[in-house]
Write a protein that binds this DNA or RNA. Structure first.
Lengths: 348, 348
DNA sequence: TTTTAGCACTCGCTTAACGAGAGTGCTAAC
DNA sequence: GTTAGCACTCTCGTTAAGCGAGTGCTAAAA
């Protein structure tokens, strides 16, 4: 399927894609001959272009228009024609990490990085929260707010803090609360959240009720929260720079624009999108390569970010297939690193 | 300025507005005569329409088009021509409160209500978090996470919970932490957040350092958080149903749509919008009545919501001046009540 | 005095026609 | 294998014509 192209074909394919990325319109043989020193006449280029079209790398919107790259063309470009390290964004970006140093709340860091990534790339950015399944519970604490309301605080080692106010019929003595805290700390802390399943929690409930005279109510609410707060599907997805899609000429069509914006408005959809990406360090999905019907005319560039060597979340951008891949790839790469670092530092 | 209109003029104005709200296009005399039983000929209606235009209630996009309502026309409609209680949405909405009963996190309640309001009205909804200045600090608690990191939890009586992980050079003994907690509880809890100014905090710092051997670091970080978390401008604004503006024909113009979406993409702007609304129970701003240049072609319907009788936040919708005012007004009214109730219960 | 019928006129919108421009594919010569 | 030349195709922007909805005015009717 992936034929080896001769040097001139490569050169021409690359030139067409680069030109198309800039102009967003079909590229003709004359333009190409003028702007790139290919040392052959337009007629020759035309022949080569016809070949590239036969091979599936180019498409013709209609007879007598120039050519545009196909998904396969972009794929070849990304895999073979660009050097990944080419772009040196690191210099510009180096100080971002310092800039965001004092954001110590994970949510703020994530939404900050979503904005940052979209600003750098000028595409819409997507970031998922750290996955809960691979997180450990670092701290469980119950505090009394008023006589019959408690605050439950849960902290994971990925820095996610979750809190809920629980209301009770009865009030609890300070002694009971303190017992409860040490009991829960003992049983829950440093456990993987995936270990805290219904079975385990039920057994805890029994054990606890045997020792302490408590309303069933409390524990039920408590583990509702635990389950709810950290359920796999509950992982939020943050968006940055939605309005950048407005700058893309491919969305000048009102219908397409509407479709896209509606899509980004549904959180369910964002979750699906980001979950459709495998756990590679950096994955690129071009057009039809996407499983989801609605984004088959888009490209995704998504990296996995790490907290203490665990792959916990994803960060990337979504845009038209005509995307500035080299710049975007470097940016996503760098920002994903920074994101991991910032969260690691913040969550100590 | 607000002339009294005779009965027929009122009737005609109302008919034009109602018709325009449905059709989104200029209304002519013939249409009006056909659809509404006004018992006069189109010619008569034309004369009346010309009068209404002279008085400023109607506008003509161009000669030989029908009339559309002016801002003044809508204002008259809202003030004089609709009965506020007319719409009975309460029935449909009654069970929303039950539905959301178990959402006990204030942020979730707010974003849930933003979505709900936008779904009911089919306009974009805006909701601001409870203002911090009028909130009391209900609970301050510092917990040890690891040797040199602490978790600070702040809870207000409006149910807002704020947490931050603080890193220190030294580690603190359990005794010190417990002392710190009772000290801070004593000095900070049940105070209005507006009272906790720099002066007060500085005096606390002195007092504390005198009694306890602490790194200056800790307290500095602590009150950075306190200041930061609850600063007036920090109040977030939640959006719901951005994509509903796509359904409005007035935004079928790509340029206008872009402008609007960019606007809603900037949180700063949303804050300005919602802060431009006075503290009335229900305020309606029609087109030019808005101070902000960018939304002079939009209408806002915004209600204040209350927690234990304090006006703490705002909830409303933004849409084209051609808005279904009666339905929107009732909806905003009802939902603002529900929002207040839900938060009160959750933070109770 | 108010209402109405009649009518000429205006304006926006849609459709069709047309020409310019860009680009192609093919053929034949280099 | 490469290139010049050329007829052909297709899009896009502009112009013109026709339609439809609606108006304002006048003069007659109520």
């Amino acid at each position: 399927m992936v034929e080896e192209l001769d040097k001139r074909k490569k050169r021409i394919l690359q030139a067409i894609i680069q030109e198309h990325i800039i102009s967003a319109s079909p590229i003709g043989s004359r333009t190409l001959a003028k702007k790139y020193s290919l040392d052959v006449s337009p007629a020759t280029i035309r022949n080569e272009m016809a070949d590239l079209e036969d091979l599936g790398y180019l498409e013709q919107p209609h007879t007598s228009a120039g050519r545009i790259p196909s998904d396969k063309g972009y794929r070849y470009y990304v895999d073979e024609l660009i050097r990944r390290e080419e772009q040196d964004v690191s210099g510009i970006i180096k100080n971002i990490e310092d800039l965001y140093q004092d954001l110590q709340n994970v949510q703020d860091i994530i939404s900050g990085m979503a904005k940052m990534l979209s600003n750098i790339t000028h595409y819409t950015a997507l970031v998922s929260e750290p996955k809960t399944q691979v997180s450990r519970l670092k701290k469980v604490e119950i505090m009394q707010l008023e006589n019959n309301s408690l605050l439950v605080v849960l902290v994971t080692d990925t820095g996610m803090v979750n809190n809920k106010i629980i209301k009770l019929q009865q009030s609890l003595s300070a002694r009971k609360i303190s017992y409860l805290n040490s009991f829960l700390s003992d049983k829950l802390e440093n456990k993987l959240l995936s270990e805290l399943d219904l079975n385990y929690l039920n057994s805890l409930e029994k054990e606890l009720l045997a020792k302490l005279d408590l309303s069933v109510d409390l524990f039920k609410q408590f583990y509702n929260e635990l389950e709810g707060a950290f359920e796999p599907d509950g992982v939020k997805v943050y968006l940055g720079g939605t309005s950048y899609i407005l700058e893309q000429p491919e969305f000048n069509d009102l219908e397409r624009l509407k479709k896209m914006l509606k899509l980004l408005d549904q959180e369910e959809m964002l979750k699906k999108i980001i979950n459709s990406i495998s756990n590679q360090d950096l994955e690129i999905k071009i057009g039809q390569e996407n499983e989801l019907e609605d984004i088959k005319n888009c490209s995704l560039v998504v990296a996995t970010y790490y907290i203490s060597n665990r792959a916990v979340g994803k960060i990337g951008v979504i845009g038209p297939t005509r995307m500035e891949y080299p710049r975007v790839i470097s940016s996503v790469d760098v920002i994903s690193d920074i994101l991991g670092n910032l969260i690691s530092k913040a969550s100590g």
